[in-house]
Design a protein around this nucleic acid. Structure first.
Lengths: 124, 124
DNA sequence: ATAGACCGTGACAGCGCTGTCAGGGTCAAG
DNA sequence: CTTGACCCTGACAGCGCTGTCACGGTCTAT
C-alpha cells in the first residue's frame, strides 16, 4: 500500500509517516519508481506508534523501543532496559493524570466562583 | 517584591514572569529605577495562571480570562463567554484524562508482553 | 499523449513556550 | 568606591513536532 492509503487508514498524516521513517520508526520498502510501499507490518507499527505517542513518548524514545515491542525474542538486554522505560513512562502518565485531575478541580472551582460571585460580598 | 523573589516563591522562572507580562497577564508597577514591583495581587495571579496553564489553557486564552477570574463583578457579558470557555476546557481535560488512561492501559499491555514473551510460542 | 491525482525530496515556518546570551544599568554591603 | 547580586531590554535558539510550499517525477484513464 502506498503512503496516501496508509495515511487515510491510520489517520496519521503523510507528513508524519515520512517523519517517522526519517527517524527510523518505519522502514517501508520501495517500488521500482521510488514510491514507499507499506505492508501489514508497517500498518501495525503505525498503530503502536500512535498509542505510544498518545502516552507521551517522544519519537526518539519510541525508536529505541519499537524493535523490542514488535518482536520480544532475541533481544533480552535491551528489553530489560525498555521495561524500565515503560514503567517510568507509566509513572509519568499517572502523574500527568493526577495533575489534570487537580486542574480539573481548579477549573470547577473557578466556574463556581464565576457563577456565584455574590458569595464574595455577602453583607456589605 | 522584585521579580527574583516572586520567581523563588512561585516556582515560575523569571523568564516566564516577564513573558506573562509581555502578554498582558501581569502588570506589576515599576520602581523609580525601572524594576518590576509585584504586590500580593500579582502573587495570587501567578498562582492562578499556573493552575490554568496546568489545565492546558494557553496564555492568550488566560489573558482574556484572568480579569474576569480576578474580580467577577462589573463584567457580566465577558464572564458569560468565559464560563463557556471554562466548561469547554473542562471537557478537553476530561478527554485528555481518558486518552491518558487508554495509553496507560496500552503501556501496561506492552509491559506484560515484554515480560512474558513465551506466551507467543506456547508449544513449538 | 495529456490531464489530474499521486508520489518523491528538501527546506522553511509556526506552535507555545522556555532557556540563554549580550550589553548595560541598580543597589546594598564592605 | 568597588564588588557582586540583582535587574532591565532585545534577540536568537531549541523543543518536538506539523503544515506547507517548491519543484519535479509517476501513474491511470481517456
Amino acid at each position: 500500500m502506498r503512503i496516501g492509503e496508509l495515511s487515510r487508514k491510520s489517520g496519521v498524516s503523510i507528513r508524519m509517516l515520512r517523519f517517522y521513517e526519517a527517524h527510523g520508526l518505519l522502514t517501508p520498502s520501495r517500488t521500482a519508481s521510488g514510491y514507499r510501499d507499506y505492508g501489514p507490518d508497517e500498518e501495525e507499527a503505525v498503530i503502536r506508534i500512535t498509542l505510544l505517542r498518545a502516552a507521551g513518548m517522544t519519537v526518539p524514545v519510541i525508536r529505541d523501543f519499537l524493535p523490542c515491542a514488535l518482536e520480544a525474542r532475541g533481544a533480552f538486554e535491551p528489553c530489560d532496559a525498555l521495561r524500565m522505560t515503560v514503567r517510568r513512562q507509566i509513572g509519568r502518565v499517572d502523574d500527568r493524570i493526577d495533575s489534570l485531575k487537580r486542574s480539573r478541580a481548579a477549573l470547577e472551582a473557578i466556574l463556581v466562583q464565576l457563577t456565584l460571585p455574590e458569595t464574595r460580598a455577602p453583607a456589605s
